[in-house]
Write a protein that binds this DNA or RNA. Structure first.
Length: 583
DNA sequence: GCCGTTTTCGGCCCGACTGTTTTCAGTCG
């Protein structure tokens, strides 16, 4: 049980209590505890054991007791009772744009709307018209948001899927007749949002016996992750050729579908080969295409590794991340696939926060984590004054911080610290700081944090105005999306990419697993336009320094090489690239 | 629910801004 899972339970308790209309301070306490726990650098279990957990202000006896219970049983009774009473789906109401605690309470308590289906029905039947506090515009917002949430219903962000994958791995590791296994499909392609988890399992002898053993384990295992065996009536495999392969279907994590393919050693890698790509990609492989449409066995692929399969098909090996679109097939046939960027190609992080603004840890601790990552350079980019919620720095504090960064840099061995800022792009496209101040910064990341409801034309003009500011080096999380929760705001990305190319402005891949903004579709366009990309963590705490992995995943899925990414360059070269003519 | 004690319970409340609604709920990191 990891901190993040305990944190989620407390967050959900807070949400359910909010909808119920419980006392606000009790709710706040759960929210605060959830925030503290998710930012901890140490495991809750270790802190409890050492008697240090309650030394954090906001963690009391009740939270410690419940945390212990969660660590032991995977959940706590108070939470289970709330779920039994209100239904876990009530939580979805709070995910809607335009719906906060009060409105969710009105929907749930006064109108009997318990989940998104009820809400959908209420919207269609006009039940929400004339409800006090919900006007025409709010109804529109809720309605749009409902459509968006339904599109993502049943999906999970990659970070969550990788956690689930770890749980499932423990179960498979303990099954004697499993020789080896590998995650495939969406998870192997490292999709930002996964629709399902798929696993290929190589069985040691009797496939049916292994299947029965695994079904038994999935039904009775003691892991904190609940699994429910599902036997679909009319299941058809994504591609007919996989029909004869034995499968187990189950649900995890309250509704995420899992498919386990069970095969013998001779078929292991060919099943992996067939299940990793999207159907669109697989269909583009000429010699495989026809056979996948039939149920005949693909015997010529048996007993081969994936590399050998690609070789036999007359093409170079395609990394799993590139098996989404068909175009990589052509490149592989021509032996023209890009040499994808690797994790350790990154030499620095150009977007990070500290407790000077809304980060959880002090600058020294964040820098220490960067040194542990063996980075060559590290930019401190706390929020600017307009992000008052995030304790953004006014000009005076920024000047003080610049000095502090320089001093810390003097004292610190093995890494170069860069003084920076994540500057708000204001409504009219201007920035929070004067040019005089911006000129003193090594790194200027400019981001939109407010006024998300402008028209596409206004928003595009706003960001282009920032791009044209000669002091702006990087545009942070360009589209403002939160995966599965908030749509991108309206903005013309191709126009932005064009402006970035004209002004030598860098676009960011933000490594926050709930953002991963820009996504591969846009990054590919940016690369084509010759725009450099920065892969940043936007870390607000030490654990979040690990987010670079997600950022690199997106870069790889976008077909980026080391040369396409700004922060793979040595510091001197980075300075040259950023040191544009400023008159 | 947590904290800090006047040690048995009262006070706690991100906050500036937007925008819909008509006084306040929702939003942002």
């Amino acid at each position: 049980m990891k901190n993040i899972e305990i944190s989620v339970i407390f967050k959900n308790i807070a949400k359910l209590l909010t909808i119920k209309g419980e006392a606000s301070f009790r709710i706040k306490s759960y929210e605060k505890a959830a925030d503290i726990i998710s930012d901890l650098a140490e495991d809750v279990s270790e802190l409890i054991e050492a008697g240090k957990f309650q030394s954090f202000s906001g963690i009391g006896k009740t939270i410690e007791d419940k945390s212990k219970e969660i660590l032991e049983t995977g959940t706590c009774q108070a939470y289970e009772k709330l779920i039994a009473e209100m239904g876990i789906e009530a939580l979805d109401l709070l995910e809607l744009r335009g719906v906060g605690g009060k409105t969710a309470g009105v929907l749930y308590n006064d109108l009997g709307i318990k989940n998104l289906n009820d809400l959908s029905y209420a919207l269609d039947s006009g039940k929400l018209q004339g409800v006090k506090g919900i006007g025409k515009k709010t109804l529109e917002t809720i309605s749009d948001s409902l459509i968006f949430l339904k599109t993502y219903k049943g999906t999970r962000i990659l970070a969550r899927c990788l956690d689930i994958a770890k749980h499932l791995s423990k179960i498979l590791d303990n099954c004697d007749s499993v020789n080896q296994y590998q995650f495939t499909g969406d998870v192997r392609r490292l999709e930002e949002v996964c629709r399902s988890i798929e696993i290929v399992v190589e069985c040691s002898d009797d496939i049916i016996a292994t299947k029965n053993a695994l079904v038994e384990t999935f039904s009775t295992h003691q892991q904190p992750l609940q699994t429910v065996i599902n036997e679909p009536q009319n299941y058809t495999a994504k591609i007919p050729i996989l029909e004869p392969i034995e499968k187990i279907h189950l649900f995890v994590d309250s509704g995420l579908p899992v498919t386990v393919y069970l095969c013998s050693a001779v078929d292991f890698e060919s099943v992996l080969f067939l299940t990793t790509p999207t159907p669109e990609h697989l269909n583009a492989i000429p010699s495989v295409n026809e056979r996948c449409e039939s149920k005949e066995s693909l015997t010529e692929l048996q007993n081969k590794t994936e590399v050998e399969i690609y070789d036999k098909l007359g093409m170079s090996f395609i990394p799993p991340e590139l098996r989404k679109y068909p175009d990589s097939v052509t490149l592989a046939i021509e032996d023209q696939l890009p040499q994808l960027i690797e994790f350790n190609d990154l030499r620095g992080d150009l977007h990070t926060h500290t407790d000077w603004s809304d980060g959880a840890h002090c600058m020294e601790d964040m820098v220490e984590a960067a040194i542990a990552r063996e980075l060559d350079y590290y930019a401190i980019t706390d929020h600017s004054v307009s992000s008052s919620v995030a304790n953004g720095l006014d000009q005076q504090r920024l000047l003080k911080q610049i000095k502090y960064v320089h001093q810390l840099n003097e004292k610190t061995e093995g890494i170069t610290l860069l003084a920076g800022s994540e500057v708000d792009i204001l409504r009219d496209g201007s920035l929070d700081y004067s040019d005089e101040i911006l000129a003193q910064l090594d790194i200027v990341v400019a981001s939109v944090h407010s006024n998300f409801t402008l028209s596409e034309a206004e928003m595009t003009k706003r960001v282009i105005c920032a791009i044209e500011n000669p002091y702006v080096m990087i545009i942070g999380h360009l589209t403002g999306r939160l995966l599965g929760r908030r749509q991108e705001y309206p903005i013309n990305v191709p126009e932005i990419i064009h402006a970035a190319a004209e002004n030598n402005t860098i676009l960011e891949i933000n490594g926050s697993p709930s953002r991963l903004d820009l996504g591969p579709e846009y990054v590919r366009q940016a690369k084509e336009a010759g725009v450099l990309i920065a892969v940043n963590t936007d870390a607000h705490s030490i654990p979040e320094s690990e987010r670079y992995k997600y950022g690199v995943n997106v870069a790889r899925r976008s077909g980026l090489t080391k040369e396409d990414v700004l922060n793979t360059y040595p510091l001197e070269q980075l300075r040259q690239i950023l040191n544009r003519d400023i008159s």
